[in-house]
Design a protein around this nucleic acid. Structure first.
Lengths: 251, 251
DNA sequence: ACCTGAACACCGTTCAAGT
DNA sequence: ACCTGAACACCGTTCAAGT
């Protein structure tokens, strides 16, 4: 930053470029960060190798010096997002620790709207993602879950461990409340159950029709239901381990 | 089907084409079905407007007579899959009805591996999908859930309502068990918690390392944990509505 | 009026020619 | 040895020319 290696002569030669300064040697880290910033700005569908190269002031081929292909670029972008998740709190009850971790993941994901769909689309995990999962699994084991129950817990939590869930019905608001009201009315006759549900939600929020629901509340509601259910299973497991009467299991 | 309108002469003229018979007038339904079949065969990334046209023995532009664009094609494909989900059972306990519906959705989704990712990627729902959701919401309302609690329930179930969940750690098996064992060993030193969990799962299944887990079991495990949690809330809600004394339970 | 070939504006990626 | 322009093999979609 402070020690710019560019000689003044080069500065003068390149001063007419409208793009941001380049010359600074490209590296993987810079490529990934630029890709994240670009996706934040224009969305994941606007992210192309060509456009990213443009943004970095290099020719498209230059990128292939640092990443094998676009897939590797996406993997690196996910790592940047995962890297923004807070490290685990220590000491407290497993439920508090896991809950905090997941809500932190959610905050990271919300800073990068494209991230959930990219995480979904990826097949093999990067070391960064494996480390995140390892640490999360460790929270359950430290909390007294057996390895088996931990495994079930992971499947139960699903993508929530990364801080997102699949939207099942997009009940977000349109900008125009009048148009929205019309839609709701037309929907009501054909889909009466949907209408009843949506009306109740709107009524709760004491607003005009179609304000939509509080996503953060819903996320935490579902998360807590899950964690409570898992806590119940953990206790049951601990109980059956302590008393060797029935089909008790050890280690 | 039985009344083929094609004259024999046309049949003879086109008999040398290696593709399946065309001539049969294209319509939306045929386009969607062909797209589903093609995606089943070659995967969603292999599905292009050009390739689909080829498969149907028409020029790419012909498709645009029946669908506005590729997005509409994908919407139609999702509708085909949703249409394969069994209609709801009637009469029984809400939990049995919802459970059966979701497991039927899961069977549909498994017949079309590409479907979950396409459902995820879609933004606005088709009438078919709205009808599916309306009927699902109806199951909760009929089961005694308030509209509000039904709304929370939907957010809790998430994409499971369509019969899928996001894989969080791909612990599926590689074909080569020796190579798999090597990977696991290398992983063990760096990600001890993952290793511990995977080992426990493998041990349970009484198999060589890396057989992976029983996805159907895990899906049902998580689903039942969710449904049990929701049943608990339903009872609490019913209790607080009926008996104003304590948090007593009815039904 | 209907159909469709060619073209447009993009992709990710390869490769060989240039320095 | 390094860098990069041009090209390849695709996309989805537009549009005007052909019948």
């Amino acid at each position: 930053m402070t020690s710019d290696p560019r000689p003044t002569t080069v500065m003068l030669e390149t001063v007419e470029r409208t793009e941001q300064p380049r010359r600074e040697r490209l590296n993987r880290e810079r490529v990934f960060r630029a890709a994240v910033a670009l996706a934040d700005e224009v969305g994941i569908e606007g992210l192309s190798m060509r456009r990213l190269a443009d943004e970095l002031g290099v020719v498209p081929m230059a990128l292939y010096k640092h990443v094998d292909n676009k897939d590797e670029l996406l993997a690196g972008m996910v790592d940047v997002v995962i890297g923004e998740i807070d490290p685990p709190a220590s000491g407290a009850d497993w439920k508090i620790v896991v809950r905090g971790r997941i809500l932190s993941a959610r905050r990271s994901l919300q800073r990068h709207q494209w991230a959930s769909s990219v995480i979904e689309s990826r097949t093999d995990p990067t070391p960064t993602l494996l480390a995140y999962m390892d640490s999360t699994i460790g929270m359950f084991l430290a909390g007294g879950f057996s390895a088996d129950l931990t495994h079930h817990a992971l499947h139960t939590i699903g993508s929530r461990v990364y801080g997102f869930t699949q939207e099942v019905l997009n009940d977000s608001q349109s900008v125009d409340p009048a148009a929205q009201a019309l839609v709701v009315q037309r929907v009501a006759s054909v889909y009466p159950h949907i209408a009843e549900m949506v009306n109740a939600v709107d009524h709760d929020r004491g607003s005009v029709v179609g304000r939509g629901c509080d996503d953060q509340f819903e996320f935490e509601f579902a998360l807590d239901l899950l964690l409570d259910g898992l806590e119940r299973l953990r206790r049951k497991e601990a109980g059956s381990l302590a008393a060797p009467t029935a089909d008790g299991v050890r280690d």
